[in-house]
Write a protein that binds this DNA or RNA. Sequence first.
DNA 1: AATGAATGAGACTTCATTCAT
DNA 2: CATGAATGAAGTCTCATTCAT
Lengths: 219, 219, 219, 219
Amino acid sequence: MNKVTELQNEALKPARRTESKEVRRQQLIEATIESIASNGIAGTTMSTVTETAGLSLGIVNFHFESKQKLFEETLVYIAREYHEHCLRAYEEVGPFAREKLTALVDAHFHPDVCTHKKLAVWYAFYGEGKRRAIYRDLIDHIDDQHWDIATELCQELIEHGGYTCPPAKQVARTLEALLDGIALNILMYPESYTAADGRKQAHTYLASMFPKHFEMPTF
Amino acid sequence: MNKVTELQNEALKPARRTESKEVRRQQLIEATIESIASNGIAGTTMSTVTETAGLSLGIVNFHFESKQKLFEETLVYIAREYHEHCLRAYEEVGPFAREKLTALVDAHFHPDVCTHKKLAVWYAFYGEGKRRAIYRDLIDHIDDQHWDIATELCQELIEHGGYTCPPAKQVARTLEALLDGIALNILMYPESYTAADGRKQAHTYLASMFPKHFEMPTF
Amino acid sequence: MNKVTELQNEALKPARRTESKEVRRQQLIEATIESIASNGIAGTTMSTVTETAGLSLGIVNFHFESKQKLFEETLVYIAREYHEHCLRAYEEVGPFAREKLTALVDAHFHPDVCTHKKLAVWYAFYGEGKRRAIYRDLIDHIDDQHWDIATELCQELIEHGGYTCPPAKQVARTLEALLDGIALNILMYPESYTAADGRKQAHTYLASMFPKHFEMPTF
Amino acid sequence: MNKVTELQNEALKPARRTESKEVRRQQLIEATIESIASNGIAGTTMSTVTETAGLSLGIVNFHFESKQKLFEETLVYIAREYHEHCLRAYEEVGPFAREKLTALVDAHFHPDVCTHKKLAVWYAFYGEGKRRAIYRDLIDHIDDQHWDIATELCQELIEHGGYTCPPAKQVARTLEALLDGIALNILMYPESYTAADGRKQAHTYLASMFPKHFEMPTF
DNA sequence: AATGAATGAGACTTCATTCAT
DNA sequence: CATGAATGAAGTCTCATTCAT
């Protein structure tokens, strides 16, 4: 029985009182994302999480050590999902640097990871002050790895296109910063600025830097 | 009596138990910034604020309606300071668009406004979920005005330089997003990425877009 | 089938998933003693008990009505064990009052009943306030019976030795109180004061009161 | 204004909303004693304490760091009161060892310190298992000092009376253990065994050991 | 104006008990 | 019989707000 069938069967059965530990953890993490997006970190309580999940108050401390641990695992979950999503996109397309960079940027704005909810969680943790160091350590290496890959691809493009532009490392860093800034726009102005807008803006930057490889979108 | 004279008089008098309302409010707002930067919004309490200010616990509710209001006024204070700082820079330099855009970007990274503490406050509010709408409304028009000015300046440069590039509005938006993304970097990696690094990166972007007007920094 | 045979058979069989009700109850009571000794009554939970017993959490409520009942049965178990142990000692030795009193005191300090763990349980219940009345009722008649026996033996010694001393009832009561106080010492200072020290101290009292019947220990 | 007058005036005034820190702490410690006596340690909650004190729930954590700290300070309070009470009795009477030992024993049973409530607290902490070590450390040196004083007095009596009896140290230890055992009796059987009974029993022991110095009570 | 003790709602967490498996 | 996930009441502690001083 494949996964999809399993999930369909699942839907037919009455809600099981006891789910597997992994299913419940997943359920709670998703409720946490939901709640952080709606209420912020300061406004997210054990109650908001469990009510969102439709479960009882005590269950979080049963599956997670504490609220703090739940938050950490939630951030790790989102970070890992994003990371794997991007890596997969990077690996499955090919073989040209142009294609790979496009895939990477498009992955960033893909509806699976660039949802309002998930962006809200990212920025909630960014703003967390005291705990920023903890959260940063959790996602540090992911940031680094993205930067490395982007640098490598930019380097290939620069060599191939004979561009006179800043070093690949700088271009990649600017690209990453731009993606972050765009994400903030999507988060803050969801009604007037969408993921599609963001994607177009990122492509505009690529076309500006590497005109021989990327086509400038029309405005 | 102007502000300087007032401060001088202040120094001559013994510390007054009862300061003017405005001085106290200012003092509390600065303590709030300090505390949000150190403890995050969730970790900022009336106690952390008043202890930072060296005042008594009860005083906040005397000078501000509530904690919520204190937070709002704190954000407004930072936003207004930033805004006026940028506007002044924009107005005092002249008359060329190149000069004004440089001034605007440099103002963004000026040590008065681009401190770790103040960036932390910005991003703390960005991450606040439920209250995001409130905070956004407070700073919306500031963002808009910045974008308008930047657009106008880019437009001038494009016309003057005869660039074939995306519309000025797009370039300006990308610039704004980039500045936001750079600020996040300064916030997250204060040890390895400074305001000076950020400024250089922003100038690199300008030099890439408008090579006839801006010199590419050396790397 | 007697108890020894039963235990031997037990060893030959593979560990049964379902033990007889009595074995499980015994196992849980012993785990309760262990846990109360380590964690106190306030720190003893269904989890600490079942973990100590190596069983699953839910099992207590299957074998005992409630936690409260488990506690009561645990106290009764210890009290009964102590009582039967003393009675047996009293009955098996003889026929002189001197021998019987010695046996009674020695039984009190016997390694089977005067363990740190079991003393801890006694005093845990003594300190239980609200529930003290309940627990007291459980062990009341045991205390009384001990006192009666000790009184009878002292009476015999007094008559036989022609001592001029307080009434037998008083001497017996003092002996009982002394045994309680000594037990507290063993509980509180396990490293510097052992059951053997306690036994010696009790014998010293007997030798002081009944010098013709008991030899004073040497110091 | 002496203390009594002050207290009377106090009673006439309406309950003050803000008392001095020391008064509140005292009030809360007394409520804690009350509650431990009624409910045991396991049954004593922040609610039972504050309700007994007629104050609001949050106040304990304002005056004490935690419940744990409140408990420790409560035990220290009772221990110190008892200790000072005994020392004062010992010092104020004189000059003979017989008088001093009498004073010491009588102090033990004095209505100020030998109340049912306070005994309940002592034994509640004795029975506390895991925390026993902490509490023991708090009262260790008091026990030691008592033992030292009693030993010294017994030594004097033995030398003066020319008794052939166990070493003074042993007699003193037995006396202390007896006092503990008697206290347990008072605690467990408050209706049939009073502090006066206990005092008489202790005196009986002294008269048995030192017949030339103490008169045997009549029965 | 300023202080800080007091309040009490609400947060996190624990845990006795239940019950589907 | 046994398991252990789930529940939810109750506990400890925090903290925004109030208000007597």
